[in-house]
């Protein structure tokens, strides 16, 4: 009982995910700042922003549904936190079961749908536009991401992340067999996180703040937290699926390598957002269905042939 509570609330649950989410946000902003010749924020800036948002006045348009507007960020937060419970961190996973990869993928999609709904119910012109865009984008990146993520599952002959990691211990890291799949998964993750160059639903110069234009105060704070935690859970998942081969006898060494891999992936994500311009929604749909999906299918075909 006590053990489960510890898992839920401290590690790898709430506290750990929130702290790593805020750390991710700081690292991302810092890297981006350095790419742009700026100094960047101090380490406590994301936490300070969160505290500031939680202490601010909460405003919504007059006719907006306040109950749903409160519920949606909480649903998203709980679903990403739950997803975080099942992702092994440096090989440690307390709640592993067969099929947890599917649960993670499903739970990670909930915030996007909630984001769309948040745009619709908050009744601003920009938020409705942003919500529609987020749904359109969802159909563009989700399919290649799903196909790419099923690559490790096919090769590992299991839908459980920890089993896939065990297989990698025998065969070697899956990045060797599926470099293309890894790239597609990163692209899909960027789309899921609505980061530059796929920040179409919240492009400041086009739709002001996207779905969250009308949100403020604690609700916006929860939304920001959701984005950060979604990002770290996605990063952990990709590391586990493609680099999860290291079975170190010493746990500290395993943690060190896991952290380094995460840092490199964050650097890649920040670098991508620094050097690419935002795409148009029709260009993104074209990219998703004409280029990414065929490439993902190619990768899957290769994996299946390898398995035979």
């Amino acid at each position: 009982m006590f053990r489960s509570l510890f898992h839920l609330l401290v590690f790898p649950g709430f506290l750990f995910l929130v702290i790593s989410g805020l750390t991710f946000e700081w690292l991302d902003r810092k890297f981006l700042a350095r790419f742009q010749r700026r100094v960047g924020p101090p380490w406590y800036q994301p936490l300070a922003d969160l505290i500031k948002l939680f202490s601010k006045e909460d405003l919504l348009p007059k006719n907006a549904n306040d109950f749903l507007a409160t519920l949606l960020p909480l649903i998203s937060l709980s679903s990403v936190l739950t997803a975080g419970l099942y992702v092994p961190i440096a090989g440690y996973t307390p709640f592993s079961f067969e099929g947890d990869l599917i649960v993670i993928i499903f739970l990670m999609s909930v915030p996007t749908l909630a984001y769309y709904l948040a745009g619709i119910i908050s009744l601003g012109i920009y938020s409705v536009l942003g919500g529609g865009r987020s749904l359109l984008q969802f159909f563009s990146y989700e399919v290649p991401l799903l196909i790419a993520l099923s690559g490790p599952a096919i090769l590992g002959r299991s839908w459980s992340v920890s089993t896939i990691m065990e297989t990698q211990g025998r065969l070697g890291p899956f990045i060797i067999f599926q470099p293309l799949g890894f790239v597609l998964a990163v692209v899909g993750l960027i789309g899921k996180l609505k980061r530059d160059p796929f920040d179409i639903p919240k492009a400041t110069s086009e739709v002001v703040g996207g779905s969250l234009t009308e949100f403020s105060g604690a609700k916006l704070g929860f939304w920001n937290l959701v984005m950060d935690i979604q990002a770290v859970v996605g990063i952990f998942l990709l590391i586990d699926l493609y680099f999860g081969w290291i079975k170190m006898s010493h746990p500290i060494l395993a943690i060190a390598i896991f952290v380094i891999e995460c840092l490199i992936l964050i650097l890649v994500l920040s670098g991508t957002s620094a050097i690419f311009a935002r795409l148009r929604i029709d260009q993104l749909a074209g990219l998703g269905w004409r280029i990414l999906v065929p490439l993902a299918l190619l990768q899957i075909g290769f994996v299946i042939l390898m398995g035979v």
């Binding site: 350095r34 010749r37 100094v39 960047g40």
Partner: peptide
């Protein structure tokens, strides 16, 4: 652009 970005990462910030 990639070059410029990497260069900026190595150099001191200009702020």
């Amino acid at each position: 652009l990639l070059n410029a970005v990497v260069e900026a990462m190595i150099k001191q910030p200009e702020t």
